[in-house]
Amino acid sequence: MLFAFQFQSPGPIIFEVGPIVIRWYGLLIASAVLIGVSLSQYLAKRRGVNPDALADLAIWLVIGAIPCARIYYVLFEWQEYAQRPEDIIAIWKGGIAIHGAIIGGTIATILFARLNRISFWQLADLIAPSLILGQAIGRWGNFFNSEAFGKPTNLPWKLYIAPPYRPVEFFDSAYFHPTFLYESLWDIGVFILLLSLFFWGLKNYNRLKTGTLAAVYLISYSLGRVWIEWLRTDSLMLGPFKIAQLVSLSAIALGLLILAWLYWFKRPLPDVVSPRRQHKKAINDR
């Protein structure tokens, strides 16, 4: 064996003083938000969009995405949370679903775009790189919480899981696939792809159509999630099917439809803005 690296979580808590408890999960989410806002503002400047709008949108996204991510997770794990309802709001213990966050964030962005008369697809393009980078950072919260790991393995990069966190069916196994790491690395790859497309679009004016980055995000992230989900042991289920895989396959189909609309049929995506804004834009284009 040329190399070996064993992962082992140091625990979910960074430090605690009396009633004050600082957890890795919360710190990582907060860091992802701050980095994401800064990156989106930078990209907005490069596209000639007011960066202050992205700072304002960030508040909407936090309000829309995090609660929806938790609600999504709790609904599909209701049998467990019905027995301990006091944990429903205990988001610091983990248990949020990125697909729920995307749904909540999309609704928040649509509302923000309508109220501020900004193109939804422009905003989606500016958010996509920050979103996938935030996902890459946030996945490490699963590592510290000893959750979202895969099936047992003896690979050199195996992850040690303490007995209290092991699934009942794999209680005698000590090492598992570090699926948090797989997804984090995949997300970094998608982030590099999206940034490359963004700057290519700046150099090749009008060749990268608005909405492309959002579509590529849907396809590329979902492709990774489909195969990584096969390895996980704690997936949310809908009967015999893994929900994340079903949603990911739907997202891939949606992303392909968007790209076909933009480049095959060569039609622009309708902006999610008010009719007044659309009328004003039509007059200015004459």
Rank of each mutant, 00 (worst) to 15 (best):
L218P: 09
I98N: 09
D285L: 14
L126W: 05
I258Y: 07
G211H: 08
T179R: 08
I161M: 08
L181Q: 01
G138S: 02
S9K: 09
F170R: 07
P152N: 07
F5D: 05
R276G: 03
G48P: 13
V49Q: 13
L57E: 05
G255L: 01
F143Q: 10
W92I: 05
W261V: 11
I96N: 05
G104R: 05
E169C: 02
E77P: 07
K266W: 00
F191Q: 00
D285P: 00
P12T: 01
N204E: 07
L195E: 00
I96D: 03
A53D: 13
E86L: 13
N142R: 11
A4Q: 15
L254G: 04
F198P: 10
I228E: 07
K158F: 00
V247H: 04
V49W: 04
S250W: 03
N206H: 14
N154T: 15
P178A: 05
P178M: 02
R70E: 05
S235T: 05
V190M: 01
T106F: 12
R84E: 11
L256R: 11
I243M: 07
N154G: 10
S220V: 12
S184G: 07
L249Q: 09
G18T: 03
T212I: 03
L262K: 10
V62K: 05
L231G: 08
I20Q: 09
V272E: 14
L181F: 12
I98Y: 09
L236C: 04
R276M: 09
P152L: 03
V37P: 06
Q41F: 03
F7T: 03
K280Y: 10
E86S: 15
K93C: 07
F15Q: 06
L57F: 05
W24E: 09
E86Q: 15
Y81C: 06
R207K: 15
A97K: 07
S184F: 00
I66G: 09
A4R: 14
W92Y: 12
I91C: 10
A260S: 14
S38Q: 13
A108E: 06
I243Q: 09
E169I: 13
V216L: 14
E183F: 00
I188C: 00
A253L: 15
L126E: 04
F198Y: 08
F3W: 14
F176Q: 08
F241R: 11
R84S: 13
P163W: 02
L27D: 01
L75D: 07
P163E: 10
I103Y: 07
L238E: 03
A113M: 09
Y25N: 04
L194D: 00
G104V: 03
D285A: 15
P12F: 03
V37L: 11
V49S: 10
W264T: 13
K93S: 09
R84K: 14
L28F: 03
F265R: 15
I228S: 10
I132E: 00
L208M: 14
E16K: 15
S196L: 02
P10A: 01
F149R: 11
G26H: 06
I63C: 10
V17R: 13
W230Q: 14
L115G: 11
L259M: 09
R277C: 11
I103M: 12
L54F: 03
W24P: 12
D285F: 06
I63V: 15
G224I: 02
R47T: 01
W140Y: 02
V21S: 14
I66C: 05
